[in-house]
C-alpha cells in the first residue's frame, strides 16, 4: 500500500510517502506565498525520489494550516490529530506532545496515538519558532550559535514578556545594560519553555513527554524544558516531519478501513470518521 501525507505549515511544507507502513521518502521545503504550487512541488520531489507517480498513491491526507490548498489530497485532517498519530507511532509510550511550530504551538495529550485533549496558543507569536527567529536576528546570531551560547551560560536573566515584540524591547534594554548575550539567551529559552509548559498545564503534563515541530530543534529549548520538568523528554529524529508522517499513517488507515489497497487513487467513497 502506498500513501502520502502532506503538511503545509505556516513556515515549512513537508511531505512523506509511505510504502506498507515504512517511510519510502520525504521532503521539506519553505512554504512561501503560493501554497498550491509548494504543495505540488514538494510532492513531486518526494515522488521523484522514490520513483513513483501521484496516481500510484492509494490515499493522500493533507494537514497543517494550508491543508485546504492541496488539490490532490483526498482528505484533510487537522495537524493536531496528525501529530498525535505520528508521535504515537514513533513513541508508543508518549502521553504528552508539545509541538512548536513556526507560528503556533500546541500541547496534545495522547493515548495510543489518539488525541484525548489539546490546547493551542493564542494568535500571537509567543511560544512559536518565529519568536526565537526574531531574537536570533536581532542579536545577529545563527540559530545554532544562539543555542550554543544559551547552553553554556552560567546564569540567566528572565524575560518577563511573552509578546515577541515586547520581549525584543526587553532584550534591547538588557543589551544596553551590558548583560552578556549568553545570559540573556539562557533567560530567553527558560521563559520560552515556561510559556510552553504553562499552556500545557491545563492539560496536565504527563510522561513520556515528546517535543516536536521545527522549534523543538533548538537544543537549548529542550534543555530548558527538561530543566523545568526535572526529567528527560523525547525528540523524534526529524521533528519537522511528524505531522506529514501522521497524515500518511492516517491515510493508510483510511485505505484499510475502505478495505481496498492498490490501484488508482479514487476513493471518493472512503468513509470519513
Amino acid at each position: 500500500m502506498l500513501t502520502g501525507g502532506i503538511d503545509i505549515g505556516s513556515t515549512m511544507t513537508k511531505a512523506v510517502v509511505m510504502r506498507d507502513g515504512e517511510i519510502a521518502g520525504s521532503e521539506i521545503t519553505v512554504t512561501g506565498a503560493e501554497h498550491r504550487r509548494t504543495a505540488h512541488l514538494v510532492m513531486a520531489a518526494v515522488l521523484e525520489r522514490v520513483g513513483l507517480k501521484l496516481d500510484d498513491l492509494d490515499f493522500i491526507v493533507g494537514t497543517g494550516y494550508g491543508r485546504l490548498n492541496i488539490p490532490f489530497a483526498d482528505r484533510q485532517i487537522t495537524e493536531i490529530t496528525c501529530h498525535a498519530r505520528g508521535i504515537g507511532s514513533l513513541f508508543p509510550q508518549a502521553q504528552t506532545v508539545i509541538e512548536i511550530g513556526g507560528q503556533d504551538c500546541k500541547c496534545i495529550r495522547v493515548r495510543d496515538g489518539k488525541v484525548t485533549d489539546f490546547a493551542m496558543n493564542e494568535k500571537c507569536a509567543a511560544g512559536t519558532g518565529r519568536f526565537l527567529q526574531i531574537a536570533a536576528d536581532m542579536m545577529e546570531l545563527t540559530l545554532d550559535k544562539m543555542n550554543e551560547l544559551a547552553l553554556n551560560a552560567r546564569e540567566m536573566v528572565p524575560i518577563s514578556n511573552y509578546c515577541a515584540i515586547f520581549a525584543q524591547q526587553e532584550i534591547i534594554s538588557d543589551l544596553s545594560l551590558d548583560i552578556p548575550a549568553d545570559v540573556i539567551l539562557a533567560g530567553l529559552f527558560d521563559s520560552f519553555a515556561r510559556r510552553l509548559l504553562k499552556m500545557a498545564a491545563s492539560l496536565k503534563v504527563v510522561r513520556e513527554v515528546v517535543l516536536t515541530g521545527g522549534g523543538s530543534k533548538h537544543r537549548a529549548l529542550r534543555a530548558a524544558v527538561e530543566n523545568i520538568l526535572g526529567y528527560p523528554v523525547r525528540l523524534p529524529a526529524e521533528p519537522l516531519l511528524t505531522g506529514a508522517y501522521g497524515a500518511a499513517l492516517l491515510a493508510a488507515e483510511q485505505v484499510q478501513r475502505a478495505g481496498r489497497a492498490g490501484g488508482t487513487r479514487k476513493f471518493a467513497e472512503v468513509s470519513v470518521g
Binding site: T81, V115, K123, G273
Partner: peptide, 27 residues
C-alpha cells in the same frame, strides 16, 4: 473544547481547533 475569542469570531484559528476536537470525538 475550551475556546476564548472575540465577539467577531476569527474563523480559521477556531476552525482548526473545532475540527481537531471533532476528530478527537471520532476516534
Amino acid at each position: 473544547l475550551f475556546l476564548e475569542g472575540d465577539y467577531m469570531v476569527t474563523k480559521e484559528q477556531n476552525k482548526t481547533r473545532i475540527q481537531a476536537f471533532l476528530e478527537m470525538l471520532d476516534a
